[in-house]
Amino acid sequence: MSNHYLFSLEMSIELALINRKSSFVSDGVKMATPMRRTLVALHRATCSSLMNAEASLDLRHPLPLYLPVRTKKRYFIPPSVGMKGFKDSNIQDRARKAGVAPRQQYFERPINIASTSGVFDPYIPPEGDARLSSLSKEGLKQRTKQIKQSAGSQLAIRKIKEHDPQFSTKSFAVQAQEIFIEAHTALTQFNKEKLHSLLTERCYPEMTRGNRYKTISWTFLESLEPPKVVHARCPDMISKGNLYGQVTVRMHSKQTLAIYDRFGRLMMGSEEQPKDVLEYLVIERHLLNPYGRWRLHGKIVPSWAPAKDPIIKTVLIPGPDLKPGEEFEALNHQVPKPEAVQWSK
């Protein structure tokens, strides 16, 4: 709005006041004075409103489109990057001062109630798997230990039969051998679904660890001795009535095992040379679960067992640098033999 427009508006109001004043002269001075004051106040209010409107419509100084409004108070401000002398404990202290409760940290490990985490009271097989003479001192100790183990096994078998009436030591030994054969056959094919149905959650990682890029060839030839139940325990976990049945089966059989690496080279064993294997298998079942089944839980390796065959690893033998068009066989390169090294523990 221009100044010329304001000046013309003021002149028109002044003329109106003069005309109004001349008309009121005849009526008297008392009546004209308050009317004049009213018109002067109206004139001033009109001029101030016009000036405010002109200032608001002035495009040279536009107002911001939005105004920042603080809606939420920030109680905790993280420290700046590279702050010296700052520790993790200070974060919790500052959070408590600001009224924010820090989150509690839990260090508990998850548990699985479908199976136990180990073998309770493991069976200790006699040295050499042969009975010593009861007349000798060592034979007398061995016989006493067997009597104690057999007494505990009889009590555990009674508890197992209360929850599994079809349980029998004679038939269970054959069933355990079938579970062992099916589990190792599924391991060669790496059938995960079948392995989970035949192995417990403790035994599964132990059997499958490190076999991702390997080829396993395993066959069960024959049983040299009939399998036999030698040990039984019925432990409880978490609560007193949550029972698990663990049965140890002695199995003496003839097997073949060959393991190949990812390059198809033999690492251990042989497919043509069978071996006599004496194993003590631990079969477990959650007795309170009506849909539970007996699964392979682990193996007991006695201290007097012979050591396993060493693993043959595939290594790269350095050779000569071949030029384009040359062949390694034509050079008659002799591979140097490694020098003997004394290894100390």
Results as ranks from 00 to 15, higher is better:
L63E: 11
L63T: 03
L63A: 15
P64A: 07
P64R: 01
P64I: 02
P64L: 07
P64W: 01
L65Q: 09
L65N: 10
Y66Q: 10
Y66G: 05
Y66M: 01
Y66F: 04
L67T: 14
L67F: 13
P68D: 01
P68Y: 06
V69Y: 01
V69E: 01
V69S: 06
V69N: 06
R70K: 14
R70G: 15
R70P: 11
T71D: 09
T71F: 08
T71E: 15
K72P: 00
K73A: 12
K73D: 10
R74W: 14
R74P: 00
R74G: 05
R74A: 09
R74L: 15
R74K: 15
R74Q: 12
R74N: 13
Y75M: 14
Y75S: 13
Y75A: 09
I77Y: 08
I77N: 07
P78C: 11
P78K: 14
P79T: 07
P79A: 13
P79K: 00
S80I: 08
S80G: 08
S80V: 02
S80Q: 02
V81P: 08
G82H: 13
G82F: 01
G82R: 02
M83P: 00
M83Q: 05
M83S: 04
K84R: 09
K84E: 11
K84V: 11
G85D: 03
G85F: 10
G85V: 12
G85Q: 08
G85L: 04
F86R: 14
F86E: 07
K87Y: 02
K87G: 09
K87F: 05
D88H: 06
D88N: 03
D88V: 11
S89T: 08
S89F: 12
S89L: 11
N90Y: 09
N90A: 14
N90L: 14
N90E: 08
N90H: 13
N90W: 03
I91W: 11
I91K: 01
Q92P: 02
Q92C: 09
Q92R: 12
Q92A: 13
D93N: 09
D93V: 14
R94I: 05
R94H: 08
R94M: 04
R94C: 00
R96I: 15
R96S: 03
A98N: 00
A98P: 03
G99P: 08
V100S: 08
V100Q: 03
V100P: 03
V100Y: 05
A101F: 01
A101S: 10
A101Y: 00
A101D: 05
A101T: 09
A101N: 07
P102C: 01
P102W: 02
P102Q: 07
R103S: 07
R103G: 03
R103P: 10
Q104E: 14
Q104W: 10
Q104D: 12
Q104I: 14
Q104L: 15
Q105P: 02
Q105V: 15
Q105T: 15
Q105F: 15
Q105Y: 13
Q105L: 12
Y106M: 13
Y106L: 12
F107P: 00
F107R: 03
F107C: 06
F107D: 03
E108L: 11
E108N: 04
E108C: 04
E108G: 07
E108M: 08
E108A: 12
E108P: 00
R109D: 01
R109N: 13
P110R: 00
P110K: 06
I111V: 05
I111E: 02
I111R: 05
I111H: 02
I111Q: 05
N112H: 06
I113L: 02
I113P: 01
I113D: 03
A114G: 01
